[in-house]
Each structure stands twice: as structure tokens, then as C-alpha cells.
């Protein structure tokens, strides 16, 4: 449900809500590094986060790919759940392939198409693909991601590879990234 305004400014400018988001992230990062909630530390963190936001904000246009909507945190949580399951499956998959004496691999490079428009969205998708079973993002050109697939069924085309590799993540990422 994003406005046309947000769509036109996809990756060029960064809006005021995004500044607030960056500020919140920096402040949270500070709190995690400090590790306590003393007023003194929080005041210092608030000031430092403000300074960093103002200084670095204009260069952080990658964050403009975020959808700042009420439903976004919910989608983020669902994505995390999906991601963890995929990461654990990936490791069991690696363990199985490495330990089986016949080394069951059929590696090939395939291309995958993404519908995510923003740089941040594509980055997250490529990262997710790298950490999921049997796939490694090699290159990103436009809306095509080149993926090294360790067990590529013969004769896989772009559509099939997209369904198999990217669709699951994309569905979740689309909830909070453009």
C-alpha cells in the first residue's frame, strides 16, 4: 500500500521517516554495544546517533528500499523464521553432501529473476540465497541474479530456477522491502 510518491523516489532520495528509522537503528546499535540502560549512556547515545544520522544520512540512500509500514515488522519476523529454517537446512544439506562417499553434487550456474526493485531488497535476497541450501549468489546484474547451484537438475531454465531458489524468500522480503 505504498503511495506513488514513495515509488518515484525509490533509490535516489531518502525520506524523513527513513531518517527516523536510521536514527532508531543507530541508537539501538549503541545500546547493544554499551549493554546497559543507564541514563548517562542513553543520553550520550542519543546525541551520537543524531550526529551520525545527520552526517551520514544523505549517503545512506540504500535504506530507501525499506517499506516503513505497519505490517513490515510482522513480515520481517516471518522472514527471520523462514531464514533460520533455511540456514539450518542448508547446513544439514552440506553435511550430507560432504559426508556421503559418492559426493552427490551436480553444480551449475543458473540465472534467477527478482521482482524486488531496490538495492537493499536485492542485496538481502542475494545474501539469503547464499545462506540457503546449495545455492551461492555469484553476480547481480539488473534484476537477474547469477546463482551457483550445487545440485542443479538437468535442463533447468530461468523460470524453474526462480521458483525453486528465489520465490520463497522474495515473498517474505516483499513485505518490508521494495
Amino acid at each position: 500500500m505504498h503511495t506513488s510518491h514513495a515509488q518515484h523516489h525509490d533509490d535516489e532520495t531518502i525520506s524523513l521517516p527513513h531518517y527516523f528509522f536510521i536514527y532508531a537503528v543507530l541508537f539501538l546499535f549503541w545500546l547493544l554495544l554499551v549493554g546497559n540502560l543507564r541514563l548517562q549512556e542513553m543520553a550520550a547515545g542519543a546525541l551520537v546517533a543524531l550526529a551520525v544520522t545527520l552526517a551520514a544520512g544523505p549517503h545512506l540512500s540504500i535504506f530507501s528500499g525499506l517499506r516503513l509500514e505497519a505490517a513490515a515488522p510482522f513480515h520481517l519476523l516471518r522472514y527471520f523464521g523462514y531464514f533460520w529454517a533455511a540456514l539450518i537446512r542448508a547446513n544439514l544439506d552440506v553435511a550430507r553432501r560432504v559426508l556421503s562417499p559418492s559426493l552427490p553434487i551436480r553444480p551449475a550456474l543458473v540465472e534467477v529473476r527478482t521482482e524486488l526493485k531496490s538495492n537493499l531488497g536485492r542485496l538481502m535476497l542475494a545474501n539469503s540465497i547464499t545462506l540457503t541450501p546449495g545455492t551461492l549468489s555469484v553476480d547481480l546484474r539488473g534484476d537477474h541474479i547469477l546463482v551457483h547451484w550445487i545440485d542443479c537438475p538437468p535442463g533447468t531454465d530461468l523460470e524453474a530456477a526462480t521458483r525453486e531458489i528465489a520465490a520463497g524468500f522474495e515473498q517474505h522480503l516483499r513485505g518490508f522491502l521494495k
Binding site: 552440506v94 560432504v98 553434487i105 545462506l131 551461492l136 550445487i150
Partner: peptide, 10 residues
């Protein structure tokens, strides 16, 4: 490529 795969995930 396959080495990067296993090493990254593990």
C-alpha cells in the same frame, strides 16, 4: 565455487 558454498554455510 562448491568450496565457497560449503565453507560459507558451515
Amino acid at each position: 565455487y562448491t568450496r565457497i558454498q560449503t565453507a560459507t554455510k558451515a
